[in-house]
Nucleic acid binder design. Structure first.
Length: 418
DNA sequence: CCCGACACAAAGAT
DNA sequence: CATCTTTGTGTCGG
């Protein structure tokens, strides 16, 4: 019930940072001649799957990662109608609802997108789909705070104070569809990149990087939810997606390419890792006990059994927070929406999406008797939402990163914005 | 080199 | 503690 989110214990550079938000237009209330402008903020946490290798955020294409997303509006008046005016356009669209989703793009070219896939716990035996757009309500604005300490007391009942959306939600998904309330946070689980970054191990060619993109859309369809305009998005730091098994990289290490983290491919569109680790450690930053700077690759002395052995630095203390965000959302979302571009401008790109339903089908997987999502009573099995409940924090394998322990409230995105 | 599929095994969840 | 589930990853074939 609480909307609390994971954790704030995120501290260490155990997860890839996000670049600052990029807005694609002006969001405002329709409250009068001088409409009140609204500033959207996107929050996201990439939990699991990534580790730092040579100062670069890396993951394996074959492994899962999850992304917790939320957004907020400042100021936020729950009942006031909102409108969105894309940059470079005078056209104003009424905002019926907000939807979030995730995608990925090549660092060099934001225009080159990379597909993301989502599995069910049954993996190959179950259906595979792309992350869907999920309807969401804004969280209380973090206002002027750092995105980091945004946690709201959890555990204490006081946290629902913001009664922004009435808690009536319990409901069935379908119900919420109509105008009910939506979760303020959503976790995309079991996500993986459809393809690896190019030139992964080559020292010669420039390493390619991807950026995970957390997007916020406004649903502007007059009647049905099938028309969206992207309002803003927030990219992650650039990352490398390895295509082969970990074993192949263990020994590999290029190490000195020094293409370096920061400059890496240089292509990074924004900042690579400047925020914390990345470029830092070489300079001798006093990092936390992260020993991984040297490379997680040294997983120790194992000799034949590469299997995990987490060699956590051990300094990962305090992890007591596991507020997992239990989002129950179960039905409702998934609108077959298609997308079409509206118009573009040199600087502001207005993107409109409409969905011609048809490309994805709801798949229903039969949860064996237990799965995470069963918790909710979704009337329709077909509208699922892969369980977002578990925000498991198992210890990573060799990556040994305490996914969310320790924390570092500060410097997160500042080295470079785009 | 990368990808998809199959298969096994370890970590967690029950 | 036994068992089932979930997920990382080795491996083979394309």
């Amino acid at each position: 019930m609480d909307v609390t989110y994971p954790p704030r214990s995120p501290g260490q550079p155990t997860i890839p940072p996000l670049e600052p938000i990029t807005t694609l237009g002006l969001l405002h209330y329709a409250d009068g001649a001088p409409n009140t402008p609204v500033r959207p903020e996107i929050n996201g946490t990439i939990d699991k799957g990534f580790f730092l290798s040579d100062g670069e955020w890396t993951c394996y294409r074959r492994n899962y990662f999850s992304c917790v997303c939320s957004f907020s509006l400042t100021p936020y008046y729950q009942n006031m109608p909102l409108q969105f005016t894309p940059s470079s356009s005078q056209q104003t669209y009424p905002v019926q609802a907000f939807v979030m989703s995730i995608s990925a793009v090549v660092s060099d070219n934001d225009s080159q997108s990379i597909e993301l896939v989502q599995h069910t716990p049954k993996r190959d035996k179950g259906p595979i789909m792309k992350p869907e757009k999920v309807r969401m309500a804004p969280k209380m604005s973090p206002a002027s705070h750092h995105p980091l300490n945004v946690y709201h007391g959890q555990g204490d009942g006081g946290l629902t104070p913001r009664g922004i959306y009435d808690p009536t939600y319990g409901a069935t998904a379908a119900a919420s569809q109509g105008g009910g309330t939506f979760q303020t946070e959503h976790t995309f689980e079991r996500i993986q990149f459809k393809q690896a970054t190019a030139n992964n191990g080559k020292r010669r060619a420039a390493q390619q990087y991807y950026h995970l993109v957390i997007e916020l859309y406004a649903e502007v369809g007059p009647h049905g939810p099938d028309q969206y305009v992207r309002v803003a998005y927030r990219r992650s730091a650039k990352m490398i997606v390895r295509g082969r098994s970990p074993g192949h990289y263990q020994t590999e290490r290029r190490g000195s390419t020094s293409s370096g983290p920061g400059g890496g491919g240089g292509t990074l569109g924004g900042f690579g890792n400047g925020p914390m680790i990345g470029a830092d450690f070489p300079s001798g930053g006093p990092m936390m006990g992260g020993g991984f700077a040297g490379g997680y690759e040294n997983r120790g002395p194992y000799s034949g059994r590469p299997h995990h052995q987490h060699n956590l630095p051990a300094e990962a203390m305090i992890p007591p927070e596991d507020s997992k965000a239990i989002d129950n959302t179960k039905g409702y979302q998934y609108y077959p929406a298609s997308v079409y571009e509206g118009q573009q401008d040199s600087r502001g790109v207005i993107e409109m999406f409409t969905d011609p339903r048809g490309d994805q089908e709801s798949n229903s997987y039969e949860s064996k008797g237990k799965s995470e999502y069963d918790g909710a009573s979704s009337p329709l099995p077909s509208l699922f939402h892969p369980g977002q409940v578990m925000s498991n924090r198992r210890c990573g394998r060799f990556e040994g990163k305490p996914r969310s322990e320790g924390f570092y409230p500060h410097l997160i995105s500042q080295s470079g914005m785009n």
